[in-house]
């Protein structure tokens, strides 16, 4: 089989969707920093590490351009997927942008709208961990197991829509698993852990299957396909460990608070036993 040179996608170089992504991440980072600075001037405590985390997330999003990433076209696409769909949402959500906005905004108006949206029924549904997981995995299956990926090479809008979906689904999943924002329903540890296990397994299986079977309609070189699939597999591991660490650290902190409380005020039963 002659080595098939992958046809250069229309978006080589910095295309319109990349310009928009870059501008949006720059604006988001600037807005976050400005609001956090205002909060601190007011006397609120807002850790600097959250600013750093948001900046890093915005940088990951802006830097997720296939044209600047190393490797063949599929490897670059996968690096973009990892940076934009997994690393950027995690880093940005760890910075608690919704909490920041709610603290900074004056009561009424926009703030009211934000609370209403965050607590609305559709958003609550989307933030149910299994639903968020299905949105993520379903999107990946559509992208890699139908001709969707091949289609994005020729249609700028489709390309942009796919990346917007990957980013939004990543944000939903991060918020639903990590419990950092004031949303309506907080899910139990077992729901979140179980979802993480299921989605991690699905991600690993899909990565391994990409190692041998390219997405339909594409003609990537085999070496490129394999590097990309391994990048997906091990990159997914990193994000999964990070998510598990966030969940476990929250459990550790909350049981620690409960422990402190019980040490400060021993339950009456124990006192009577001591007497």
């Amino acid at each position: 089989m002659p080595v098939h040179v992958h046809p250069a996608p229309d978006l080589v170089g910095v295309g319109p969707s990349e310009l928009v992504t870059g501008a949006v991440s720059l604006l988001a980072a600037a807005a976050y920093l400005a609001v956090a600075a205002r909060l601190r001037r007011r006397g609120d405590r807002w850790p600097v590490r959250r600013d750093m985390s948001f900046l890093a997330g915005a940088a990951a999003l802006a830097g997720a351009m296939p044209s600047v990433l190393p490797g063949g076209p599929f490897t670059a696409h996968m690096a973009q997927h990892l940076l934009g769909g997994m690393a950027a949402p995690l880093l940005m959500m760890l910075a608690r942008p919704l909490t920041l906005a709610l603290r900074a905004l004056p009561p009424g108006g926009v703030r009211h709208l934000l609370v209403r949206t965050a607590h609305s029924r559709p958003v609550t549904w989307l933030l149910c961990p299994p639903v968020a997981a299905v949105l993520n995995v379903g999107g990946l299956l559509l992208l890699y197991r139908t001709t969707l990926l091949a289609g994005t090479h020729h249609q700028v809008l489709l390309h942009a829509a796919v990346h917007a979906h990957v980013l939004m689904a990543g944000i939903l999943l991060t918020v639903s698993l990590c419990h950092l924002e004031p949303v309506r329903q907080q899910w139990s540890l077992s729901w979140r852990g179980g979802t993480l296990l299921a989605i991690g397994a699905a991600h690993a299986v899909l990565a391994k299957s990409l190692y041998v079977t390219a997405p339909p309609g594409t003609s990537y070189a085999l070496a490129d396909l394999r590097t990309g699939a391994q990048l997906m597999y091990y990159g997914g591991d990193l994000i999964e460990i990070a998510l598990a660490t966030v969940i476990a650290a929250q459990w550790y902190a909350s049981t620690g608070r409960a422990l402190l409380r019980s040490r400060r005020t021993p339950p009456p039963r124990m006192v009577s036993k001591a007497l």
């Binding site: 296990l197 397994a201 991600h203 999964e240």
Partner: peptide, 8 residues
Amino acid sequence: GLLHTAEL
């Protein structure tokens, strides 16, 4: 895949 994720 399940085993690998569960291990992590």
